Computed example of a mutant assay.
Amino acid sequence: MRKPRPLVQVNDQQDLRRVREEDPYFSGTLAKGLLILRCFVADPRAHANSELAERLGLPRPTVSRLCGTLQALGFLDHDERLDRYFIGPAAVTLGYPYVIHTPMLGLIRPAMQALADRLEGAVSVGVTMDLARIFHERRTV
C-alpha cells in the first residue's frame, strides 16, 4: 500500500513541472484543470482563455481544451457573447461533502447558536486555505 502524499503548493506551470519531477504519479492534466477552477476562487468574475493561460503559464490551446472539458462536466459555464468562462454549478457541489463530513460542526452548532443569540448577530466558522478563508457554517439570531 502506498503512503499518503504530502500536500504540495502548485500555482502555475513551473510548479507543476517541479512536482511532476518529484512524483511521477502526480497527474499534471488533472492539476491543470483544478488550477483553472482555483482561478475563479481568487477572482470570481468571468475569464477568457487567454487570461487563464497567462495567469497559469499554460498554453492557450491546453486551457481551451481543459475549459471545454470542465464546461461539459458542469464545472464551468460559458458565455458565448463574451466568450468567457465562469464557475458552474458542479463546482459548488464539490464542497458539500466536505462540509457535511466535518465532525466538529455538529458538536459546535449549539454553542454557535447560543453565541449568535447572545450577541444578537452572526457567528461563522471556517477553515483557512492559503490566505483565503472558507466559511462552513453561519448561525444568526
Rank of each mutant, 00 (worst) to 15 (best):
K3H: 11
F75R: 02
D43C: 11
P89G: 02
Q13Y: 13
D130P: 00
L16T: 04
P44D: 04
P110V: 02
A116C: 06
N49S: 06
L82A: 10
A53W: 00
Y85E: 00
R2S: 14
M1T: 15
V99G: 08
L107C: 04
A48S: 15
N49M: 00
R38C: 00
A31W: 01
H47L: 09
V127I: 10
M112P: 03
G121S: 14
T69S: 15
A72V: 03
L73D: 15
R109K: 14
H136A: 02
T102C: 07
T93L: 11
F135W: 11
G121E: 08
D83F: 00
F86I: 00
L35Q: 02
S27P: 02
G126M: 09
T29F: 06
L66C: 02
I134F: 14
V123Q: 01
V99K: 04
R20H: 14
L70K: 02
A53I: 06
A116Q: 09
R133F: 14
G57W: 04
Y98F: 14
R133W: 13
T29G: 10
R5E: 15
I100R: 07
P44H: 04
Q14T: 14
P24R: 13
G95R: 08
H47P: 02
M129I: 08
R133Y: 13
L131V: 10
L73R: 12
A122I: 07
R109L: 13
V8F: 07
E120F: 04
H136I: 05
L56Q: 09
V41M: 10
P97C: 03
R133E: 15
F75D: 00
L119M: 13
Q14E: 15
A132W: 07
A90Y: 00
G68Q: 08
H78A: 03
Q71C: 15
F40N: 00
E21N: 14
T93P: 00
G106C: 07
H47S: 03
Q14R: 15
R18Q: 12
P89N: 03
A48T: 08
P6W: 06
R55A: 13
R60V: 06
V10C: 11
A46M: 06
L16S: 03
E137D: 14
L66D: 05
L35N: 03
P6K: 10
C67N: 06
A116E: 04
T102I: 04
V19K: 06
D79V: 01
R2W: 10
F135P: 04
G57S: 02
D15E: 12
E80I: 09
L131E: 13
M104S: 09
P103G: 06
V19P: 01
V63Q: 05
R20D: 00
A53R: 01
P103C: 07
M104V: 15
D43E: 12
L73Q: 12
L76W: 05
T62V: 12
P44Q: 10
K3P: 08
C67L: 07
